[in-house]
Design a protein around this nucleic acid. Structure first.
Length: 575
DNA sequence: GCCGTTTTCGGCCCGACTGTTTTCAGTCG
């Protein structure tokens, strides 16, 4: 069995949770949380390292390395098994209730025998909580409400794509207030993570009272959870929690760093501040001796005052970026302005395209692209695919349209990788396309070995220039199918095939973590929207964010090059 | 449990809000 880094990281996250419930030393708990984070962010496959190699990773010492190899060899960790035996499984479920943490969960279990969410409901109904130290009637009411919210399936993490609309609407309304100088969403949404747990809104104002009031009273809000001078927490109409923080305009940069996170990134940055004899909070970077504020106005100033380069938000995950920003090795990652074209898009020539070829071409040209590849589905895709005859018809339409546009329209196709790695059409006809992306659309439940084999086989084809949405996942709806990434990266390099970062916010496939491994392996990437409508072309920013999360530079992204680079890439593959 | 630009031992990031408290612990981010 090949364990992935994520499997291993999950074991250590569980150890941390169980230790917390056991009342262990908080710093020891944090050490395990950090280890889990370090494992998840590791660029190399842990199973390829020995214990000495693992200990090289920050946050992993000899004890953790030993437990990792124990897990890789036996599939379990004795310490974790003991912890599980000592803590009722239901207690973990209790800590998922907002407002109920490990200390209270343990107290409820020890004093009242509460070992499940159902047992908690009963205890609250019988008013048995209010006798316990630190708990009173109000706590019972709050927990009862939290439990009823838990009943709605509308809570929990959401695909980022679902949260961004409400976040932008909240910001838009606050921006209209005369008291608001600046407003933006921060948190995991600003880092453009795949899923978000809540919406963090940050505003700058000299008069915060009316700003908090407007937020609380908005018709987008159904419930107010906390209301203070500096912070308001609400539940929005779509069931997502939203926090508003208002700071004085001079603190904007420090607050933005603070509320963008990630938490692990912030901890690392603040530790760095402490080592330099300073202290960093949401109001600024301070000299604790004199109380003098060294930096706070904008993000770049705050990072610079600590001797660091500005870190793009998607990279702020404590995956080595703090150290790199400090020692000058942070790569200049790809930016939206670097993107010269898009290499995966559809028109209504294929059944699922929602706009005409002309509308798509016009929209792509308006974005200033030098080229846009129309990659309608090929004949093997039931319902939506184009026969050879229809493709030839489309060729005429492209040629006619090309006369009116300076932007190069690349005649492309999205090919279907069949069970054995074969693709649509015959080799001669395929050779007449400018650009082909090949994707898996069927048989998604095959084993990892079979999926890997069929994708590697498809890459051998001289007319397969890129592999589309490599894992097939739909965030929040369909898990990725299994693949052996190392084998695929090696084959991509050998066959000179690009791997697509699908920019659709529902896919983001490759993930940021996979991008980073592809970058380390030297594989060429594309960032493409897989647009099925004009509006989809705006998703490019999500693909760029995912590339940044994976530390990709513009020179590694094929469509950050000019048209000649695309043509010489396909030419090289052909020969 | 991890780690070192004062340290191989003794620290380990910081603040807001709430509910229960007469000064603070727990939770959250």
């Amino acid at each position: 069995m090949a364990w992935t880094n994520e499997d291993v990281a999950r074991q250590f996250a569980e150890i941390a949770t169980l230790l917390k419930l056991s009342g262990a030393d908080a710093f020891r708990v944090r050490a395990y949380e950090r280890a889990a984070g370090a494992i998840g962010a590791a660029a190399a496959d842990l199973s390829a390292l020995d214990e000495a190699g693992m200990s090289q990773l920050k946050g992993i010492g000899t004890s953790t390395a030993k437990k990792i190899s124990e897990y890789l060899q036996t599939g379990s960790i004795a310490m974790l098994d003991e912890l599980r035996a000592g803590v009722p499984a239901g207690l973990i479920a209790l800590t998922r209730i907002p407002g109920l943490g490990p200390k209270t969960a343990r107290l409820l279990y020890d004093e009242l025998g509460v070992d499940s969410v159902q047992a908690l409901r009963t205890a609250i109904d019988e008013e048995r909580l209010r006798g316990l130290p630190g708990l009173g009637p109000k706590t019972e009411v709050n927990l009862r409400e939290a439990l009823s919210r838990l009943g709605d399936k509308d809570t929990g993490r959401r695909p980022m794509a679902d949260a961004i609309a409400i976040a932008e609407e909240l910001c838009l309304r606050l921006a209209r207030l005369p008291q608001v100088r600046q407003v933006t969403f921060a948190g995991s949404l600003r880092r453009l993570r795949e899923t978000v747990g809540d919406v963090d809104v940050l505003a700058a104002s000299d008069d915060p009272g009316p700003v908090h009031a407007a937020f609380r009273d908005s018709d987008l809000v159904t419930e107010v959870l906390a209301a203070g001078d500096k912070k308001t927490t609400v539940i929005t109409r779509v069931g997502l929690q939203a926090d508003l923080r208002v700071v004085e305009p001079d603190a904007w940069g420090a607050a933005l760093v603070y509320f963008t996170g990630s938490k692990a990134h912030n901890v690392r940055v603040r530790e760095r501040a402490v080592r330099r004899g300073l202290t960093l909070n949401e109001y600024g970077l301070f000299d604790p001796e004199s109380g003098e504020r060294r930096a706070s106005r904008d993000e770049a100033e705050v990072y610079a005052a600590m001797g660091m380069a500005l870190v793009p938000p998607p990279m702020r995950e404590d995956a080595g970026e703090v150290e790199a920003a400090a020692d000058g090795t942070l790569p200049r990652t790809v930016e939206l302005a670097h993107v010269r074209g898009d290499l995966h898009g559809h028109s209504d020539w294929s059944g699922d395209g929602k706009a005409t070829l002309e509308q798509m071409v016009a929209a792509a040209a308006e974005r200033g692209y030098a080229y846009w590849a129309v990659t309608d589905h090929a004949e093997d895709l039931p319902m939506n695919g184009l026969s050879r005859e229809r493709m030839l018809e489309r060729r005429g339409a492209i040629a006619a349209l090309q006369e009116r546009y300076e932007m190069r329209i690349l005649e492309g196709a999205e090919l279907n990788i069949d069970a054995d790695g074969g693709v649509d059409y015959d080799p001669d006809f395929l050779a007449s396309f400018d650009w082909c992306v090949a994707s898996v659309h069927t048989l998604m439940n095959r084993s990892g070995r079979e999926q890997t084999a069929r994708i590697v086989a498809a890459m051998q084809h001289p007319q397969v220039h890129a592999i589309g949405h490599l894992t097939g996942r739909i965030i929040g709806r369909r898990p990725p199918y299994d693949i052996d990434l190392d084998t695929i990266l090696e084959a991509a390099l050998r066959t000179q095939t690009a791997l697509e970062i699908n920019a659709s916010p529902r896919r983001l496939d490759l993930s940021g973590e996979m991008v980073r491994r592809a970058v380390d392996a030297g594989v060429t990437l594309t960032i493409s929207c897989d647009a099925h409508s004009v509006g989809d072309l705006a998703s490019m920013r999500y693909g760029v964010a995912t590339a940044q999360r994976g530390w990709a530079t513009a020179d590694r992204v094929l469509n950050c090059g000019d048209l000649d680079r695309i043509l010489s890439f396909t030419q090289a593959k052909r020969t």
